[in-house]
Design a protein around this nucleic acid. Structure first.
Lengths: 141, 141
DNA sequence: CAATTACTTTAGAATTATTCTAATGTAACT
DNA sequence: AGTTACATTAGAATAATTCTAAAGTAATTG
């Protein structure tokens, strides 16, 4: 017999949320489960919402947007900018860079941590570097 | 006395358009003038439209969007992805990278051509690298 | 160089992604 | 258990961008 949702929820998700200072609500727990269950993922709000609905999780698109942004704020997710039309979120928050498949609008982590940026100039006066993003855009040949 | 608009139009704009295979229409000529008159610029469709209207150029926002995309297609402009909410276009199409001021959503070229990406991995099977974008995100400190 | 044709521009409607709002629900604290 | 502060929600609102179909203009033709 299937346990109730709450009991099903991965305890690590709850812990994760607590540590991040976010109240572990049903939807946050279940979304966190989805997000962090199978390794690194790149997804949009629409994608995650569809997936959640498919698995029978009752959650509105608005909440998915809220949750993604909250998770991003507390460092559980990272937002990746590659496409003018949609926002991607990445479950891998460790410093790493991306391949972007222009044809199908798909993202992939660049394997290994070999890639590096050389000679990054000093940040202009009064500013500091908050992040260096590298996107290697790929096209079919 | 002021010459008529057509005669005012920078001849190089017309040439530029012809070479790119774009019919040099009034709006394209005038927008090209604005875009390429003073060096490197980073602008959005809204920005350019406002500027054009300010200078008395009659052009619709739709045409500005069309024109920016056409110019981008033929390599006269380059689209820069840094902000989920707006699309920036860059009049500098030579390989170079950007500073992005997170607070005010402003873009600037990284001076010099020192910056480089090391150890870019091979493009996955069946693909080739079309471009490598680097964005150094800055925050006030 | 006037007529024809093909490509452009335009206003406004439509679409898409995202955010807002105000009512309802729920976790956490007393 | 009751209260309070924070979350969720549906749907409306907004913002950026694209579409559409009619009107305009550059280029080509005879």
């Amino acid at each position: 017999m299937r346990k109730k949702t709450r009991e099903n929820t991965n305890e690590s998700a709850v812990t994760r949320l607590r540590q991040a200072g976010l109240r572990p609500t049903r939807q946050r727990n279940e979304l966190a489960d989805l997000l962090f269950r199978d390794g690194n993922r790149h997804l949009t709000a629409e994608t995650l919402h569809a997936e959640a609905v498919n698995r029978g999780i009752r959650v509105s698109l608005a909440t998915v947007y809220n949750t993604l942004h909250q998770f991003t704020h507390v460092g559980l997710l990272r937002q990746v900018m590659v496409d003018a039309t949609r926002s991607y979120f990445d479950t891998n928050t460790v410093e790493h860079q991306h391949f972007y498949y222009e044809e199908d609008g798909t993202l992939a982590d660049i394997p290994g941590s070999d890639i590096g940026v050389a000679n990054v100039p000093d940040a202009p006066n009064g500013t500091k570097v908050s992040r260096v993003d590298v996107v290697v855009r790929l096209r079919r040949n």
